[in-house]
Amino acid sequence: MGLINLLENEYDLYGVRWKQEPHIIMTDFGEKRLRYWKDEEMLKWHVRWRDESSKGSSAVPDRMIRTRDGESAVFDGKHWITLHDYAETLFGCEEVERWGQFIGQLLTASVQGNYRKDLSVEYPVFDYNHCLELAQNYTDGTFQILNTSLAEAKKRLRFADALHKKVQNTQVPILEKEICIANGKRIFHFLFYQGGDSKPVQSYLPIRNFLFEWLEHNSPLSLKMLLTEIDRIFPLSGDNGLLLLAEITTPWELTDCLNRLDNTSLEKMVEGMNMYEAIWDANRTFLKTVTEWFDEKRRKVAL
């Protein structure tokens, strides 16, 4: 029995045909996406975070459509296959409130979900020594910005470590490795978030990256509004906020900046340095905006 037949039988679908083999199909209920899983534990985690983060939220993640028997996946002998809704229209960044609700709900579910059991997760760790190795090729005076940034990075790292030490017993969320704006699609007028299938990470790094991406597309004020909306659902005033701040303070961009440098020609070198400066500056603005938001929030609470 082919995959199409399997899907038609298990999901009570009719007239299923490929739109984009092997991922997108056309059905009598519209376009649907297929995902293939080899690791059952990981599949279970992906089912759970989607189910849990959809509760009470006006944003909807691409939850697994259930089979006629109520199962979240079918097995074709090789993989577990899941069926999801599919949309192409981007949601965009205008509706900050909806994004904030979604991220807040996602964080709440990730922290409360007790996902850790039997699940293999990654823990992203910033490697300062590796950055020093990469920077060794660029030590002369021409690369003054690089030396300055290394010193600044070290300072930030110390600050992040101090924050981490302060909140050692707080649950760190387990999240998808990549959370990005482009995954937000529009169905009717709600935010439909298309998740992925990657191995999860236990870290605030995906949220940090999302917030940074938000600032790339929007103003600092918009980022602050987003943080306020997240805070309504998932309070950032306590330890969770400190952990997020620690992740934002960690100079993750340093590795990225150094990897972009290329001293094979003068032209590439100049281009690389310009890029380095731009990324470094953008991250400075990011850090400044977030710390400002935390300060403003603290002041409001104090009042």
């Binding site: 209920f29 519209g30 006006s58 909807v60 809704d85 169905i187 009717f188 007028h189 709600f190």
Partner: peptide, 13 residues
Amino acid sequence: TLNYGPVLFHYDL
């Protein structure tokens, strides 16, 4: 229709 769209979406209606 738009108001109830997000609800009926859950039923593919």
